[in-house]
Design a protein around this nucleic acid. Sequence first.
DNA 1: TGCTATTTTGGGTCGGACCTTTGGACCAGA
DNA 2: TCTGGTCCAAAGGTCCGACCCAAAATAGCA
Lengths: 238, 238
Amino acid sequence: MEVPKASDVLANELRERILSGDYPEGTLLPPERELVVQTRMSRTTVREALRVLEVQGLIRIKAGRAGGAFVQQPGEESVANSLELLIRGRQIRLASVHETREAIEPTCARLAALNRMPGDLARLDAANVAIAEGGSLEQFLQANLDWHIGVATAGHNEILTGIMIALSRAIYTVTHNEGFVNDEVRAITVRAHRSVTRAIREKDPEAATRRMTRHVHAYAAAALAVEERTAITVPVAE
Amino acid sequence: MEVPKASDVLANELRERILSGDYPEGTLLPPERELVVQTRMSRTTVREALRVLEVQGLIRIKAGRAGGAFVQQPGEESVANSLELLIRGRQIRLASVHETREAIEPTCARLAALNRMPGDLARLDAANVAIAEGGSLEQFLQANLDWHIGVATAGHNEILTGIMIALSRAIYTVTHNEGFVNDEVRAITVRAHRSVTRAIREKDPEAATRRMTRHVHAYAAAALAVEERTAITVPVAE
DNA sequence: TGCTATTTTGGGTCGGACCTTTGGACCAGA
DNA sequence: TCTGGTCCAAAGGTCCGACCCAAAATAGCA
């Protein structure tokens, strides 16, 4: 016997229409009360369905007159969010995050070298300047993060970009607590970023890949070493 | 002026408690009516919050007596879902999917060669048998998919696994329509999978990486070539 | 003892009332 | 005529209370 929840039925229905391009980006869905008469469901149910779609990043709901549910295609954000939940919730081994990053970021660099546009380069340069400036730990990490996301963005591959955003955030929060970012690390980072940036500017995919691989690998190794040294927390469960 | 929605406040609150390990996996949240008196919100609002968490994969709601909202850490599924939305919704270029896969799957193979357990190998073998059997297109694609996901699983990296699930599904649905899977493709696939499986069994990460790289790259090239031949659909937007 | 009927506890749906937000229209004064 | 303020209406946000349905626990009967 099948008894799917009414709100899910409606959510699925609307989701299909959105994904199939039936409701293109920016479309305003009918108001809730209108959907109530159309679907013959209660407003509660309709609202639940809309809320589901909102969480999935498929619509954006605005209150007030001229408000309503605007169709919106999901972007990197939603992927990043769900990855973040996975990483935080599962207490994912930091090693996993680094492994993933080592798998992805060299490709990001390669694609960036192939597809970068002028605006992308500007963003990378800005991040490089900010990193070299040497501000607080937060400023350094933020600039670092901006650069890595900038590389991903420059590759113009939305899947990889979404993943990188999530990974970077995770690494950010982890690296934040450690007493890991000293002057030496900063100097090395600056140099590595500069050389990768150069390869991207010169449209040299091989060099970009190679240099990024080295950089990410070194960073991962260093971070893991620090983690080992400072591992005080007892594993929660087997 | 800030006026966050009440249901979001509650959802955030509960989410934090779950992610922080305050409510460990399997915990049963208080019943809705109980939360109503605790939070002094209406049941509608409480339910909305719970629904949000459910969509994010943080709780699983069961009806009936002894039902309720059970805490659950988000798994690969939720990541796969959001990636799927991104791919479908954004009409992501198939090339992007393949690029991502080429970035990730060699690493999956390497990790599988390093971390595989007996059960993992069994799953790979089963998939290989099913592929070689040569059933319908659906059966072939399903077995193919099982194998690729099996490799990811054998690597024991949940992030990569989640991503691979999503990518595989996307490729599945795309490859499904094309008249691309002929006997030659099947034979090549069987051989490639066997050789990668062997490397994984023999714990040879380099060979696993190399062979998987070749396999995925070849597959991507072939798929793109077919796509080019059969590209009838007009690009929707610039 | 073992099976069925009932109860109880939970989520799912409904309808309707009321609040809050926010554009837009209308009006008065400079 | 332009500017500002006031009021209105449309749309989402919240609340209430009732009722329906599902599933486990338990009582009761053969």
